[in-house]
Amino acid sequence: MTDNSIDLTTLNELKEIMGDDFSELVTVFISDTQTQLDDLFAAIETSDAPAIKRISHTIKGSSANLGIENLSAISKELELKAADNNIDSSDELLNSIVNEYNDVKIELEKLL
């Protein structure tokens, strides 16, 4: 995992705001993102550009909230390509997203 994976300033601020609910937030993020990755995989299988765009948009936003910047950035790239109906390289980006997610998940679980 690179230094850019998680912005600790954002995450620490969030920890302070959420207080006791922080663990729950992390748990929700991990499980929801997992569900979205499954949906994204299915959308790429069926070349469903609007679905790819919508799901990557969601991952982009929710990861940004937690300061998970790389995951947010790659998701944004996929969202923009899907918006242009350019889904040829979706498999590669999905791989990157999954890798980032797995790295981040390990880091986040340490916080629980």
Binding site: I17, M18, E24, L25, V28, T58, S62, N65
Partner: peptide, 13 residues
């Protein structure tokens, strides 16, 4: 918001 994590964060703030 349809995303639970987003709602949680906003709600907490």
């Amino acid at each position: 918001d349809d995303e639970l994590s987003n709602r949680m964060i906003l709600s907490a703030i």
